[in-house]
């Protein structure tokens, strides 16, 4: 078993078995969705240094790609998810020139790009194709159990991708590019190709998550799947846990999304206060995420 493999198996088993003991399946589903998105951000930001604020654009493209494959081509939901992922990859290919930017410029440009995708999808002149701003209804294929099981599989795929990157030449090459792209190029790494591979891989994960989410909720509007908060949450969870590791985004999502729901349900009046304090403390004392705390006490973090 490669390093981190057992952690991945444990997480997947946890989410496969939790529905038998805990009834709020939507909470578990959303947690898995954010785990996938956090790992997608991790692939891109953790391994290449590109922070995509517009990551939700791929999520929304996947949701719409899968939905339209179901509505227009009458594909069953599971194959339609792969169409959704393919649409996200296509969008990522079109947006690949953004990788020429870096830092804040890339973050803002990716955000603008996701808004462009949103406005194209919700354009009323495309009603016959995308239903425009009027939303999608997949009531005819709604199946919360099957979509939950599919999200478990998508989660397994996302974790497998990160395990692969943590244990492969590609992952090392990407980290070398992140640290020093010019030196990496001199060392024989095809910088452009590797960056684009990570970009497409990350988009595919978001597309799969988006498609599965669309199937699970079955009725949604463009604003719901292109909501900037989805990007922000996924980024915060990733940074909270620690990037370029398998465990960091898992810890970040489980703790922070768990806290988000726990406070939201039990103490909603303290939500902003508690969440704000946690994030301020993190930025001040653990800028590299929770995993840095573990490393300080000599715990190996896969």
């Amino acid at each position: 078993m490669p390093r981190g493999g057992w952690y991945s198996v444990g997480v997947v088993l946890l989410f496969a078995l939790l529905p038998f003991v805990y009834g709020n399946h939507a909470l578990l589903f959303n947690m898995m969705m954010y785990l996938v998105l956090a790992q997608g951000i991790n692939v891109l930001f953790g391994f290449t240094g590109y922070l995509p604020f517009g990551y939700v654009g791929f999520f929304g493209a996947g949701a719409y790609g899968a939905s339209l494959a179901i509505l227009l081509v009458h594909l069953p939901p599971v194959p339609a998810l792969f169409v959704g992922a393919a649409v996200s990859v296509l969008v990522a290919l079109l947006l690949a020139p953004l990788l020429r930017l870096s830092g804040a410029y890339f973050a803002i440009a990716s955000l603008a790009a996701s808004e462009v995708v949103y406005y194209i999808v919700s354009n009323p002149h495309l009603v016959s194709l995308t239903q425009g701003p009027y939303g999608i209804s997949l009531a005819q294929v709604y199946n919360s159990g099957a979509s939950y099981a599919t999200m478990v599989v998508v989660l397994a795929m996302a974790l497998a991708v990160v395990v692969y990157l943590r244990n492969s030449h590609m992952g090392l090459a990407l980290q070398a590019i992140r640290e020093e792209p010019i030196s990496a190029g001199f060392a024989g790494i095809n910088v452009v190709r590797e960056r684009i591979r990570a970009w497409l891989l990350s988009a595919a994960l978001a597309g799969l998550a988006g498609g599965t989410y669309a199937w699970h909720v079955s009725v949604f509007y463009p604003k719901s799947v292109f909501d900037l908060n989805i990007s922000v949450f996924a980024i915060v969870f990733t940074l909270f846990g620690g990037v370029a590791t398998l465990v960091g985004p898992i810890m970040g999502t489980l703790l922070l999304y768990g806290l988000y729901n726990w406070i939201g349900i039990s103490q909603p009046e303290y939500f902003q206060l508690v969440f704000g304090i946690v994030i301020v403390l993190l930025v001040l004392f653990l800028p590299n995420g929770l995993v840095s705390l573990l490393r300080r006490v000599k715990i190996h973090v896969p």
């Binding site: 709020n24 939507a26 959303n30 909501d227 939201g264």
Partner: peptide
């Protein structure tokens, strides 16, 4: 009552909470 903060994702979790918990 629960506060969904205008988010559909949060709302889905909370509707489930009302029904199942």
């Amino acid at each position: 009552t629960y506060n969904d903060r205008s988010s559909t994702t949060t709302a889905a979790t909370l509707y489930n909470q009302l029904i199942t918990q």
